[in-house]
Design a protein around this nucleic acid. Structure first.
Length: 664
DNA sequence: CTTAGGG
DNA sequence: CCCTAAG
């Protein structure tokens, strides 16, 4: 015992010296609550997070440390050595176990060795640092982390939580929904823990409850959380509770109900405990390479034989990277879980919750037509809600938004796309449905896909940033050009990844047909744009207008004329097939429209100008020749089928006459 | 589906 | 360009 005490003291001193104050500071500063809780659960906190709370425990640890010391050297450097370490640990463990017994309980051998301690300390320091880093990176308040640590420690030391967790898990593996959180503390806790357990599973991988840890857990009892939650929180004032709440959940709460606060906080704590426990467990069983993440884990290891090996590894040298990553994930997960929890539980009105819900409900099943009529609706209307994206939080450990798993079909993609609505300036995310050409998917589909992909990229960005940045519609063209290259390849799957930066260009597909086609027209290089620059322009007022407008290039016009001359007017589909096969965009309708315009233009021009194609105001100057041709064709066709247009003909004929006269 | 016409 | 209505 004495030895132990001495050890503790030394540890403390060391920690302080090293400047690992963080743990202590966090603990002390954030909440008074911590003290009570800590005391009960983790007494060691004050000393150092890592140090076991109880003397007995400490002793145990020391023992472990010794072992570690001995064994560690072997395992040391490998970050991945988990397995090895484990084995070793197990071997070492066996010794300890024999002496200690399986349960971490206080089987202590007063062998404390400084060297072991030192190592341990070092490890701790590293961890702490990493934690700090993470925290900073995440921007999460120290408190939370402190909490987590505390929790973890507590849980670890007592092993009660883990036990609960395990139990719950085994019992209610898939229960996600908390029926009623309000019922009783116990119930809520249970539910929560169960849920958490489940949640934790996916990210980390299948958890098995056969590990030593589980055994330990079983031995322990579930009263822990109750104690923690109720007792600790009981003493706090509302204000303190609020603070605690904030620390725990990272947000403010307006609720003044002490009970509620307590409950929630308790839950949060429990959760965190659970999480940590779970992680730990997982590690034991699965040996995730990440190595143990948190100091508490180390503590665990020390205490429990199971984690022993891991602790060792860490103590010696864990690869920082894996370490950090793990931690990050861990934290994130926790946060998410908390968030979910809060959402589910939400007794009061929290912004977060509101947001979530709001997002979910946004979608409106409106019909397309209706949509058109009412712009507002159009925006909101979305077949598939993106809400899913938001929801993703649950199972997903990944910090980023996972919009959707990549393998989805194009449709899905489209669905997924989210657009930040410029509306109101508030960065509301609205699912964006690209308006595809209803009529012709054919080749256009490709274009669409591409479009979607681009759009998606934007969307993704938006989502991530949640800023009011809107895709610049006008630039679409430019973008198109830029993308051109990519567009060619693009036709296939945009494959928007969950990754925010979707911009990444896909490897080029063999599909450069477009390029070939383009090759046909030498005239317009600009025209060759294989991709259609479809961009939807969100008009503040009218809703989104497709900016699809693709300027007709001269080549196109020429082709059109040619086609018309060949096939005649009205056989647009034919023309399209013949002359515009290469152009995916430009539907027969488009051709027709263009022709109409051309006709109009030619006629309009003709009178004033003698066929001088002065008309250059348009970006694309149409050569007189073309106009002439158009006129000619118009005339011809008009004349050819006299039946058709008695009404129409007159005008044409007249124009023709004029033209002719002028021409001739 | 394609064509023709209106917005 | 988009959207629809007709054949």
């Amino acid at each position: 015992m004495e030895t132990v005490v001495g050890v503790e003291g030394s540890d403390e001193g060391k920690f302080e010296e090293s400047g690992v104050e963080k743990s202590s500071s966090s603990l002390s500063s954030p909440k008074q609550i911590a003290d009570p809780v800590v005391y009960k659960l983790v007494r060691v906190e004050g000393d150092g997070r890592l140090v076991p709370a109880t003397d007995d425990e400490v002793m145990e640890v020391e023992e472990f440390l010794v072992d570690e010391k001995i064994e560690i050297p072997v395992v040391t450097d490998a970050g991945n050595v988990e397995c090895i370490s484990n084995e070793e640990s197990s071997s070492g463990k066996s010794h300890k176990e024999s002496s200690e017994g399986l349960s971490h309980s206080e089987n202590t051998e007063p062998d404390a060795k400084l060297s072991a301690r030192l190592e341990y300390i070092e490890e701790m320091l590293q961890k702490v640092k990493q934690e700090e880093k993470l925290r900073l990176a995440c921007g999460s308040p120290d408190h939370s982390s402190a909490f987590m640590n505390v929790d973890s420690q507590c849980s670890d030391q007592h092993d009660k939580l883990p036990a609960i967790d395990k139990k719950l898990q085994s019992e209610i593996p898939l229960q996600e929904i908390v029926p009623s959180s309000d019922l009783s503390l116990d119930d809520s806790h249970i539910n929560e823990s169960a849920r958490i357990g489940e949640c934790s599973k996916p990210p980390d991988g299948p958890i098995e409850s056969g590990s030593p840890a589980s055994v330990i857990c079983n031995s322990s009892k579930p009263d822990f959380y109750t104690l923690k939650g109720e007792i600790c929180l009981d003493n706090l004032s509302i204000r303190e509770l609020h603070g605690l709440f904030r620390a725990t959940f990272g947000r403010e709460t307006t609720v003044k109900d002490k009970l509620w606060l307590k409950r929630r906080i308790a839950m949060g704590l429990t959760n965190s405990c659970d999480v940590s426990t779970t992680t730990f467990t997982i590690i034991d069983n699965k040996l995730v390479n990440k190595g143990t993440d948190n100091s508490f884990q180390n503590a665990d290891g020390m205490l429990t034989e199971g984690s022993d090996g891991e602790a060792k590894n860490l103590g010696y040298e864990t690869s920082p990277t894996s370490h950090s990553s793990q931690m990050e994930n861990h934290q994130i997960v926790l946060g998410k879980r908390l968030g979910n929890l809060s959402v589910e539980l939400d007794c009061g009105s929290d912004d977060l919750q509101m947001e979530h819900r709001g997002a979910k409900r946004v979608r409106k099943p409106t019909k397309r037509y209706i949509e058109e009529l009412s712009e507002v609706e159009s925006r909101d209307y979305t077949p598939k809600v993106i809400g899913s994206a938001k929801n993703t939080g649950q199972g997903q450990t990944s910090p980023k938004y996972c919009i959707r798993p990549p393998g989805n079909a194009p449709l899905n993609e489209r669905t997924i796309v989210t657009r930040l609505d410029s509306l109101g300036g508030s960065g509301v995310q609205v699912p964006f449905v690209s308006r595809v050409r209803r009529s012709r998917p054919r080749k256009n589909i490709m274009a669409l896909m591409k479009f979607d992909s681009s759009g998606m990229g934007v969307a993704a960005k938006l989502v991530q940033e949640a800023l009011s940045v809107r895709s610049s519609p006008p630039e679409s063209e430019h973008a198109d050009k830029v993308l051109k290259v990519r567009s060619a390849s693009e036709q296939i799957q945009p494959l928007f990844a969950a990754e925010p930066e979707k911009d990444k260009r896909r490897s080029v597909m063999s599909t450069i047909e477009l390029g070939k086609n383009l090759g046909l027209k030498q005239t317009d290089s600009s025209e060759d744009n294989s991709d259609d620059g479809i961009a939807t322009v969100p008009t503040a007022k009218g809703g989104m207008r497709r900016k699809h407008h693709r300027a007709w290039t001269l080549v196109e016009v020429i082709k059109l004329v040619e086609g018309v001359s060949k096939c005649g007017t009205g056989r647009w589909s034919e023309i399209k097939r013949l002359s515009f096969a290469s152009y995916s965009y430009r539907t027969s309708v488009d051709l027709k429209d263009k022709w109409r315009n051309l006709l109009k233009a030619s006629f309009a021009q003709t009178p004033p100008d003698d066929g001088i194609n002065s008309r250059k105001h348009a970006s694309v100057p149409i050569p007189a020749a073309i106009l002439l041709k158009v006129r000619e064709l118009a005339e011809m066709h008009a004349q050819v089928p006299p039946n058709l247009g008695p009404g129409k003909l007159p005008s044409i004929s007249r124009s023709v006459h004029q033209t002719r006269s002028g021409y001739l």
